[in-house]
Write a protein that binds this DNA or RNA. Structure first.
Length: 852
DNA sequence: CGGAACCAGTTTTTT
DNA sequence: ACTGGTTCCG
């Protein structure tokens, strides 16, 4: 493989020579970015806060390495976590250099590079070079078999747990022989033993799971210094994205490789470490300077994404964390709205309000007008997304000029000031109506709702469906994880290799062939006693007449089919035709055609799509390899839609307008995170809050609900502690309509006792909340009028007394047992004991008067 | 073998 | 409340 040719050491260009070369791409960088790009030699840690242009710095660094001839493309190892990030990096380097990057063979995800290395040295860990990569399904099925074989009740000890335990060990680069004593008790004391068996099974199956792709490589490096040395020489320059997300195995992998040249540049943000629960070690980034003495630490702190208030809010929350490397984000911008904060009665109400707000933000937007009047504007906007340097817009008068600049600058960042200018430019050209105040109006595409847990999404989907608001859920089930796709893939795998037992198990009775548990066990034992694959075992079983009736005939047909398909693959027949023959010949397509359930049509669609996807590959093998690593789900649909996704999925993205619902203690921060990981868990949740806030460019709303349906029962919720941590000045408190005392004087006439009482009890009077209210009024900001009409009584709680009988909409009648600030302990007659915010409770007599 | 009945586990997720 | 899995029975 030419990409692995061993190059003689080359002396990097002298500083002068570097300077002499054209480096236009350096002009768009701020000083620290530029420093990070130019410090090519030696270890560098780039601490890049959210929205500070870290990808830009990283890609420019690669471009610089190449452009100055310091390194050849194949001497650079650049690792990311996701395929998306890898793709983007490739594109951006190509853009910077003004040409496609010729062979950056070692730019990719940890896993894809891991596979590449492992294929070359598979024999060193007892695998063949054509090993298969298991998906999660296969892995679980295998583990279940082992659990049952070990006489463990899989109901009490589900395979899912074992998978987690093993994954955790692999993340920590622990092979079965190195499990620390502290972990011996894992999985009912059988964990270590089952792990060892599992690894053995994988070896016999000539297979690997995802964790192995890294772990095996580390093992090889550790036990074969000669191999390690070879790669240490090859990879003269190493770059790592999202370093805060690396686990121990990845860390060792990198450290081993970087040991020779020590030209390693890691980019990360300890404040955005949100994957601790799957093995990421913030510690890796925290101790970089110890690992690489003399490391240069460069901080990127100028934020080009968000308005000052949003930045303030995010910074104030994250500052509550201990043990940070410490960065202070700043922006040169001065304009922009505060973060909005609003409380709602319950989750549905929250969804309803957000739906309305979105409509308000979008309907008849200036941007829509621009889109309609100028067909090219969409392209301009897209180009514009890449603009980082605000000076680049100085003197730009027309969209044409702007386009030209964009082409020169090639930068990814967006800031609202330049966006505003773009609006004005387009407007001027098209003689549109004057624009409404900037930053008020958005397209659906520019709005995102970021939730903590995916079950929160349902309320929004329900609501948006009923009001017909277009939305898209990001990060749902992936295409290649769907049942029908996996089944089809199992057939393909078998056609490629008749030895693939796991694939055989998956499809032997799909579609139904009358081969139930009994028949399958016979096949298993026939295979085991003869030491052959399941396909061969089945053949032997049939020859020995060990199977009769319908099942036997069907099995014979399946085997004949498999042989035929396998021969087609070996004869290198057209793989698309093979695929079609497999799907039709096996009866799989027919099975779905005969299924009358509503989703069957969709599944057939997916199968068609799968076959279509094959067109991009030369053969089935290539396709399978790709799919096991690149489980992408980037179905770009061009329609304008609001995005709904989890906070985790939002990392790395940005939106002009962001809604952050569900900020309630227990949900966010998640109770489970706190229970399981204590302070560490809480701090990770806080980083999640930081990630969420920093996704927003111009407009951010934090909201919470007082009541929420959790696992089928109503729970009273307390506003998130993170709300109290938001800097007062950065927040504007909104009062929701529809709440007692809310909705403004126009709507609510304080005339009855009920309302008076409710109004006085209104408001979340946690310390932070009270401060916010006070500040807001005092400074006479754009506090909504209604919130001034509703008296925020500091002694609101006095509306209730201990022992008072009260009524709660969801819980019914109850008696107050204790009062703590605005929080009431109430013993409900039906619902039992609850902690409830005073706002959501009214005196029992009042409730009696008003039928609900 | 297939449907009904029952029961446990419900954060985040890439490769 | 809901799902996915298993078990039990016709």
């Amino acid at each position: 493989m030419s990409e692995l040719e061993d190059f003689p050491d080359r002396i990097p260009l002298s500083q002068q020579a570097v300077a002499a070369r054209a480096t236009p791409y350096l002009d768009g960088l701020n000083p620290p970015q530029r420093e990070a790009v130019e410090a090519l030699e030696g270890p560098v840690l780039m601490l890049a806060g959210a929205g500070t242009g870290k990808t830009k710095a990283l890609t420019t660094r690669i471009a610089h390495l190449l452009n100055t001839n310091t390194a050849r493309p194949n001497e650079i190892l650049a690792v990311t976590f996701t395929n998306k990030a890898a793709r983007e990096m490739k594109n951006r380097v190509a853009n910077l250099l003004g040409q496609a990057v010729e062979g950056m063979p070692w730019l990719g995800t940890f896993h894809s590079i891991g596979v590449k290395l492992l294929r070359r040295h598979a024999e060193l860990v007892g695998l063949k070079t054509n090993f298969t990569i298991l998906d999660t399904d296969d892995q679980l099925r295998l583990l279940k078999q082992l659990i049952v074989a070990a006489n463990i009740d899989p109901k009490r000890w589900p395979e899912r747990h074992l998978a987690n335990v093993i994954d955790d060990w692999k993340n920590r680069a622990l092979t079965p022989d190195r499990i620390p004593a502290a972990d011996h008790g894992a999985f009912n004391h059988r964990g270590p033993e089952l792990y060892a068996e599992y690894q053995e099974r994988l070896k016999t199956l000539n297979a690997c799971d995802f964790g192995d792709l890294l772990l095996h490589v580390v093992t090889i490096f550790q036990s074969h210094p000669d191999v390690l040395e070879q790669y240490q020489r090859w990879f003269r320059y190493i770059l790592v994205d999202e370093y805060q997300d690396t686990n121990v195995a990845q860390y060792l992998w990198l450290r081993l490789l970087a040991q020779k040249h020590k030209n390693i540049c890691c980019v990360g943000d300890d404040d955005q470490s949100i994957y601790g629960w799957r093995g990421a070690e913030v510690g890796n980034i925290l101790r970089f300077e110890k690992d690489f003495p003399g490391a240069r630490v460069i901080r990127l702190e100028q934020n080009y994404r968000s308005t000052p208030h949003i930045l303030d809010a995010a910074s104030s929350v994250i500052s509550a964390n201990k043990g940070r490397l410490g960065k202070t984000l700043y922006t040169e911008e001065t304009e922009g709205n505060q973060v909005k904060l609003i409380g709602h009665w319950d989750g549905d109400e929250e969804a309803r309000w957000i739906g309305e707000k979105i409509e308000e933000l979008v309907v008849g937007t200036a941007k829509e007008a621009i889109h309609r009047s100028n067909p090219r504007s969409k392209t301009i906007l897209q180009e514009f997304e890449r603009l980082a340097k605000k000076d680049a817009l100085n003197g730009v008068k027309t969209p044409e000029e702007l386009l030209q600049r964009l082409r020169q600058q090639n930068s990814p960042l967006v800031e609202y000031k330049t966006r505003k200018l773009l609006f004005e430019l387009c407007e001027r050209q098209n003689n549109q109506e004057p624009l409404p105040p900037a930053f008020q109006k958005y397209s659906f595409e520019e709005i995102a709702i970021l939730v903590r847990a995916s079950h929160q999404m349902r309320a929004f989907e329900d609501r948006f469906l009923t009001i017909g608001l277009p939305y898209r859920v990001i990060g749902g089930p992936r295409f290649y994880e769907r049942m029908e796709i996996r089944d089809a893939m199992a057939y393909f795998r078998l056609a490629v290799s008749l030895e693939d037992d796991l694939a055989f198990e998956r499809i032997v009775n799909t579609p139904k062939r009358g081969l139930g548990d009994k028949a399958q066990q016979k096949i298993q034992s026939a295979a085991r006693t003869n030491g052959v694959s399941l396909v061969e075992g089945a053949r032997l079983l049939l020859a020995a007449k060990g199977l009769t009736g319908k099942g036997a005939g069907e099995l014979q047909r399946l085997l004949d089919g498999l042989d035929a398909w396998h021969n087609l693959v070996r004869a290198e027949a057209d793989h698309i035709e093979i695929a079609e023959q497999i799907l039709d010949g096996s009866g799989y397509t027919e099975m779905w055609q005969n299924t009358k359930t509503p989703e069957a049509a969709g599944r057939l669609e997916n199968l068609k799509e799968l076959v279509k996807a094959l067109e991009n590959f030369d053969n089935l093998q290539g396709f399978l390899e790709h799919v096991s690593l690149v489980m992408d789900n980037d179905t770009e649909d061009a329609d304008e839609k609001v995005s709904i996704m989890t906070l985790h999925a939002a990392k790395g993205l940005e939106f002009p307008a962001v809604f952050l619902p569900g900020w309630e203690d227990g949900l966010f921060p998640s109770q489970r995170a706190m229970d399981e990981s204590g302070l560490k868990g809480l701090e990770e949740e806080r980083r999640l809050a930081y990630v969420g806030l920093t996704r927003a460019e111009e407009y951010a709303v934090v909201s919470f609900a007082g009541n929420r349906l959790v696992y089928g029962s109503w729970q009273s919720q307390m506003p998130s502690r993170f709300i109290d941590e938001l800097a007062d000045d950065a927040v504007e408190v909104l009062t929701p309509p529809g709440l007692y005392g809310g909705g403004g004087a126009e709507e609510v006439h304080v005339e009855s006792d009920l309302y008076e009482k409710a109004s006085r009890a209104d408001g979340y009077n946690s310390p932070g909340w009270r401060r916010l209210q006070a500040r807001g009024n005092q400074r006479g900001m754009s506090q909504p009028r209604e919130s001034r009409n509703v008296v925020i009584d500091m002694n609101a709680v006095s509306a209730f007394t201990e022992g008072e009988r009260v009524f709660h909409d969801k819980f019914g009648y109850g008696t107050i047992t204790a009062i703590e600030g605005d929080k009431l302990d109430i013993s409900f007659e039906k619902a039992g004991f609850k902690k409830v915010v005073a706002k959501f409770v009214k005196a029992a007599e009042a409730a009696d008067d008003v039928p609900f």
